[in-house]
Nucleic acid binder design. Structure first.
Lengths: 120, 120
DNA sequence: CCAAAGTATCCGGATATCCAAATGTTAGTG
DNA sequence: CACTAACATTTGGATATCCGGATACTTTGG
């Protein structure tokens, strides 16, 4: 009957478990962001370098990087007027490798899946 | 110089690597599909059982299951007029666990990320 | 064969997402 | 103190995605 059964429930805005993980996956569901993440897996790069690498506008790249940073995929480091981004958690590489492995084994079926968009 | 440097390039429709993996991730970026996938991680279930579990329309659930099947996350088995779905590849569980682990460690930042939608 | 259960597909409509372009902000430079 | 470079944020428009409801398909049962 208590209106506040648990302390953590004080924030109704916070998505519960599954919603959070879905949001986490959504960050990698965009080709541009995934490309950026892979670019940042090995080395540290500035926003301008990322722009040159994927060919989108600077504003869009900045937003994408901010998104990846918010989700914990990459870490941002400020040095003067430069912003350096890089993957810090080794589990991120694991996740990408695992997904690549699974996707590769279902490549043909995946390509045929019209329920997700052919924009790719 | 050759116009066709590699045999695999003969199919321009097929998304190249990154696009494919992004599509793969996109399947898990929807809370309903992720909920279904977790439901099918341990046991085999029919479409009707899935409908009862997540509370969406039958048509929608069927489409979601088809999507998960196309992407290779679950396997479909036909028995009379029933369709049984289940996760078959153990790497799928690994992927979900890894994502849960990463998402949990970035829960607060993730919840604050407004670049991805607050619909959750 | 006809009816019903289980499942798959099609349909607009509401919302979310991505983009380029323009504008802000901050930190070096002359 | 202008001025520029690097980065961040905002805006409006096009497209994608998700949804319920209606409909078609398939198999079992009478």
């Amino acid at each position: 009957m208590a209106s506040l059964p648990e302390p953590a429930a004080l924030l109704p805005v916070e998505p519960s478990g599954v919603e959070m993980v879905a949001k986490f996956f959504r960050a990698l569901s965009d080709p541009a962001r995934l490309r950026l993440l892979e670019f940042l897996l090995s080395d540290e790069h500035t926003v301008t370098e990322c722009v040159a690498h994927i060919g989108l506008t600077q504003g869009r790249v900045s937003t994408h990087l901010g998104c990846l940073s918010d989700c914990g995929y990459v870490q941002a480091r400020r040095q003067g007027r430069f912003a350096y981004y890089q993957v810090s958690d080794p589990r991120v590489a694991e996740l990408v490798l695992l997904a690549r492995s699974l996707a590769a084994d279902n490549a043909t079926a995946l390509a045929a899946c019209m329920r997700i968009s052919d924009t790719a």
